[in-house]
Design a protein around this nucleic acid. Structure first.
Length: 606
DNA sequence: GCCT
DNA sequence: CAGTACG
DNA sequence: AGGCCGTTACTG
């Protein structure tokens, strides 16, 4: 092995590390495979592995020098001072030193007595020195190799490179961010110290079989995109329901907390990790598998370890969304259409509101028009639209569009096209092979639908190309020809027809019981319909990475209205010319951008 | 939080 | 200008 | 150390 690790995961039975404190494997100077084998070896012997440096007390690594060891610790935020009493080669005294300090965990000591006997027979240092001391040790990998070779625990002494005690971190001042966020981070950083497993080295029962033979828990071969470090979500296939969906659900909740606490970068980071995990084709069995994915590092691997050990698959930082009283209210406000994280916090902290009634009672007139609509139809707009109903809406829109522009095509995009059972809204792209037919189409379709009673409110109208062009064309010799983005209408929709039978009071019109729905109608000229459909069919991270990739790898600007040169002047790049159908044109765009085609059902980055 |  | 929306 | 989607388009 180039990194000098001779650890094999097929090494038969060996000693048990159950009663060692949390072990952290330093990845430095280790290949990913070696790292995995070392972890595998430890796990097979019931060691308590951690990906959180702050809770580890043994750091195992392919390292030779004390100076290097200190550096490795420091770079992981572990500040120590040298502990002189038992340095390498010194007298072995920690047992005596620490045995007397065991006061807080009698239960654990008693419970493990029987095992301690076994352990003690081969290694006297196991019990006393570690279980209750705050000693931090950096140990050469050779120790583990020796233990494996001897099939027994071997004293660490000769393998200790450095030994220290934790000291207060110099810049440990309070974070300026919200206390909730801070608390959440604290909680995450010590996932094994919860009330459930407090202080004990006892591992929860393994769900998988103890490995004895060929069926060894070697992880499945990594997919290409892992080996090749493909970091753009738009270049991987992520299905609607990936194998690690339950873990992803937890991470999505943490991301939501980051949104609510205005941590945009954290949101971006979690999105990257989530997208990678969503593309992973099998259930993780080891945190080290997580570690191998692009966009996932110790933080995420550690969260997976917590997920795996939690029993019910919950993460403390994720549960905060439901349990923290402040976050609960912020989340509630955030789900109002037209209210983002900033406004939600303003409602809470400045206006001191706590629920929708407070808003209606004390601030109705301070709301924007769309926020009022958002509050009014709060529950209905959050409901989720079944696929059949999305199709129904599309038929109605297509009928009206056809009346106004014969030959128009209506394409359902968004979550529906990715296969979601229920969509947050209905996203429809209208296009026509005759370029002039898409001119003013939004306005015409929306007013037609309004007249027939399908559209109850228009939340936003984005008019760019067509309407404005005509009015301002003479004035527009603009410097930067950003002449195209798509026309679109974001509307509130309600089926106007319902049974008006029964009423004993026939004069009073019964209220329409059909739920209000959010519908987005997007207009695209045929010339760029492939871009429109591509830009409106992927999950957020897929679309972000699409733009990022177009920029970084081609120097192009991609959006749903087309592909352009990024250099001023912005020459249009026509990647879809020659495509006969919108499906063909979308495929040509994906290939032209160099991401390769994949169906919409595989663009689910969450 | 992760990557270059 | 900041804030929100869209995927 | 600096970037992270969009020179988005809209509202107020």
């Amino acid at each position: 092995m180039s990194d000098g690790s001779s650890i094999s995961s097929h090494d038969g039975h060996g000693p048990s590390f159950t009663f060692y404190p949390a072990i952290y494997v330093l990845p430095t100077h280790l290949s990913l495979e070696s790292l995995h084998r070392v972890e595998e070896c430890l796990l097979n012997r019931d060691a308590r592995l951690t990906y959180d440096p702050s809770e580890a007390r043994v750091f195992l690594g392919n390292i030779g020098q004390r100076k290097r060891a200190i550096l490795e610790l420091r770079s992981r935020g572990v500040c120590t001072e040298l502990e002189m009493r038992s340095v390498p080669g010194g007298v072995h005294v920690d047992g005596a030193l620490d045995l007397g300090t065991e006061t807080e965990s009698d239960g654990q000591t008693n419970q493990s007595t029987g095992h301690l006997k076994r352990a003690r027979s081969s290694d006297a240092e196991v019990d006393g020195s570690f279980i209750n001391s705050d000693l931090i040790r950096v140990v050469r990998l050779g120790w583990l190799e020796k233990c494996v070779e001897e099939k027994d625990l071997v004293p660490m002494d000769q393998y200790i490179i450095y030994q220290g005690r934790r000291v207060q971190h110099p810049d440990d001042k309070a974070t300026k961010g919200s206390e909730i966020l801070h608390r959440a981070q604290q909680d995450v950083s010590r996932p094994h110290r919860g009330t459930t497993h407090r202080g004990t080295t006892h591992r929860p029962p393994k769900l998988y079989k103890q490995s004895t033979s060929e069926n060894e828990d070697t992880p499945p071969p990594a997919p290409d995109w892992v080996t090749n470090h493909v970091s753009y979500a738009c270049m991987r296939s992520a299905p609607l329901h990936p194998p690690n969906e339950r873990f992803i659900d937890q991470l999505v909740k943490i991301r939501k907390v980051r949104e609510l606490t205005l941590d945009e970068i954290g949101v971006r980071a979690y999105s990257t990790s989530i997208a990678a995990i969503a593309a992973y084709p099998c259930e993780f069995r080891r945190a080290s598998e997580v570690l191998a994915l692009p966009g996932c590092d110790m933080k995420i691997a550690n969260l997976f370890a917590e997920f795996q050990q939690s029993g019910d698959g919950s993460l403390v930082a994720a549960s905060a969304l439901d349990t923290d009283p402040v976050l609960r209210v912020l989340h509630h406000f955030y789900r109002i259409w037209g209210v983002g994280a900033k406004t939600a916090r303003d409602f809470y902290y400045a206006r001191q509101w706590r629920d929708l009634d407070d808003i209606v009672e004390h601030g109705w007139n301070s709301l924007s028009r769309v926020q009022q609509i958002g509050v009014k139809y709060y529950d209905e707009l959050l409901e989720g639209i079944p696929r059949a109903e999305v199709e129904e809406i599309a038929r109605v829109v297509h009928r009206h569009a056809s009346a106004v522009r014969p030959g128009v095509e209506c394409i359902v995009v968004g979550g529906y096209r990715r296969g979601k059972e229920a969509s947050g809204d209905a996203d429809l792209v209208l296009s026509h092979r005759d370029e002039s037919a898409t001119h003013n189409l939004v306005v015409d379709v929306v007013s037609s639908l309004e007249t027939e009673g399908w559209i109850t409110h228009t939340l936003a109208l984005h008019l760019t190309t067509s309407t404005r062009d005509q009015q301002t064309l003479p004035l527009r010799h603009d410097t930067g020809n950003h002449f195209d983005t798509l026309d679109k209408a974001l509307v509130v929709w309600q089926d106007p027809s319902f049974n008006d039978t029964s009423p004993s009071t026939p004069e009073k019109k019964k209220r329409n019981p059909n739920p209000h729905r959010r519908v987005d109608i997007i207009i695209s000229p045929w010339r760029t319909v492939g871009c429109a459909v591509l830009g409106w069919s992927g999950d957020t991270t897929f679309e972000r990475d699409l733009r990022r990739h177009a920029k970084k790898s081609r120097g192009w600007k991609f959006d749903s209205s087309g592909v352009r040169e990024r250099t001023s002047g912005g020459q249009v790049i026509d990647l879809e010319r020659g495509g006969e159908t919108w499906q063909e044109r979308e495929k040509l765009v994906m290939e032209g951008l160099g991401i390769g085609w994949r169906p919409p059902g595989e663009r689910c980055t969450r």
